[in-house]
Simulated scan of single mutants.
Amino acid sequence: MPLLFAYRRWWCFAFIGLLLLPTLGLVMPDLKAPIRTVQTVPPAWWIQATERLDPYINNNYGFRGLFMGAHAAYSKFMKSTRERPVLIGQKGQIFYTGEKALDQSLGRIFRTDQVERLVRVTDRMRDVLKARGITFAMVVPPNGQSVMPDLLPAWAQTEQKRPTEYDSVAATLPARGTAFADLRPELTAAREEGPVYRRTDTHWNNRGAVLGFNAAMRAAGRPELQVPESEALGPLTPTATGDLARYLGETSETGDLDYPPKGPMVQPANLKPLPGLMPATRGNDPFEGYAYETGHAGPRILVIGDSFSQSFWPGLLARNASAFGWTHHRNCRFEWSVIDRFKPDIVIYAPVERAITCLGSPAGLDMK
């Protein structure tokens, strides 16, 4: 047969060798790779094998780390994000696009019904809390692309439309009597003196968090509770890459920049926990609430927020509050009874921009 001609036999051996490489990879050293979520072959895998066996093969093929690293490097070089919820902008800035955040910031979507639900919830919160003598204010940490539109790819910059959902909320709530801080102008202006968002992370950096906290205190009519940047932050320092970089296989201990927290931004170790005041979380829910007494005079402050305040604000709150607490907003479905238990003097409602729309039936409308 022509296939077995001598000069073709070596190609046959080479082809078989390539097919055996993944098998050799099962016993040879490999590069570090994400954890294998399927460790064993499922029972009766031969029944509907494509559904039962494929997850095991995808987690355990030879040279898995090498192939995944090579693919991540290629995707990064080509600036390909495929189905990942990220967008690579100018100067290497990575933007989160999940939960329609990009379309929201560009004004390409406007969910009227959900924005109206938010207005009703905040109206009700303001009125109920005011009747109890509790100060209420709202701040909205912007999506990164709302503060850094100049770093979006050129095609995205041409898609900007007005008004956005943030525009509508920022105009509507103050007109209805709700204390509201539009953080976009301040954070945008602050970029002239240094970054306010991480390059590789969904979140603002420590400096952005301090600016957002201070804006919240001013909106609540308590400017004396602000914390100066100079007291809370060290100099800009290399830091590890964040959550968005992991989508692209980019990991580095010095691949990003941030201002290390110091002084009042570091949570004190001598705080007294107040158990049972915040709603319990289930399973591996990362948004576990907390409440503490500080041991000194000051207002009791409750923040209803998300990851933009959960781990960024405890030290800032502890500096001047007699007690402070944090619970997740749950897209307007937060547990209202937390206010009854904690008895705050000030309530700050602080959902990130992509979460300002209320999904479903907000619990906030059932306040008493």
Results as ranks from 00 to 15, higher is better:
residue 333 R to A: 14
residue 307 S to V: 11
residue 307 S to I: 13
residue 308 F to Y: 11
residue 324 F to H: 01
residue 342 F to E: 00
residue 310 Q to E: 10
residue 325 G to M: 02
residue 313 W to F: 09
residue 348 I to C: 07
residue 326 W to S: 07
residue 305 G to W: 01
residue 313 W to P: 01
residue 350 A to T: 08
residue 332 C to P: 03
residue 306 D to Q: 08
residue 334 F to W: 09
residue 316 L to P: 09
residue 305 G to F: 06
residue 335 E to Q: 15
residue 347 V to L: 08
residue 323 A to S: 11
residue 331 N to P: 04
residue 325 G to D: 10
residue 338 V to F: 06
residue 328 H to T: 02
residue 346 I to Q: 10
residue 313 W to Q: 14
residue 340 D to P: 07
residue 312 F to I: 06
residue 316 L to T: 12
residue 317 L to M: 09
residue 321 A to R: 07
residue 309 S to V: 11
residue 343 K to C: 12
residue 333 R to L: 08
residue 318 A to N: 13
residue 310 Q to K: 15
residue 341 R to H: 07
residue 301 I to Q: 00
residue 331 N to S: 11
residue 321 A to H: 09
residue 348 I to K: 03
residue 308 F to L: 06
residue 324 F to Q: 04
residue 339 I to S: 07
residue 349 Y to A: 11
residue 343 K to E: 13
residue 314 P to I: 05
residue 320 N to F: 15
residue 306 D to H: 13
residue 305 G to S: 02
residue 304 I to R: 03
residue 330 R to I: 04
residue 323 A to H: 10
residue 337 S to T: 13
residue 345 D to W: 01
residue 345 D to K: 04
residue 350 A to G: 07
residue 344 P to I: 05
residue 327 T to N: 08
residue 323 A to V: 07
residue 312 F to L: 12
residue 310 Q to M: 14
residue 322 S to Q: 12
residue 317 L to R: 06
residue 301 I to M: 07
residue 343 K to Y: 12
residue 313 W to V: 06
residue 314 P to K: 03
residue 312 F to G: 03
residue 329 H to M: 02
residue 337 S to E: 13
residue 325 G to S: 10
residue 317 L to E: 02
residue 347 V to A: 07
residue 325 G to F: 05
residue 302 L to Q: 06
residue 304 I to P: 04
residue 301 I to D: 07
residue 313 W to R: 12
residue 336 W to A: 13
residue 335 E to P: 08
residue 337 S to I: 05
residue 313 W to M: 06
residue 309 S to M: 10
residue 340 D to Q: 08
residue 349 Y to L: 14
residue 309 S to N: 15
residue 326 W to G: 03
residue 349 Y to M: 10
residue 339 I to D: 01
residue 341 R to N: 06
residue 326 W to A: 04
residue 303 V to I: 14
residue 312 F to R: 12
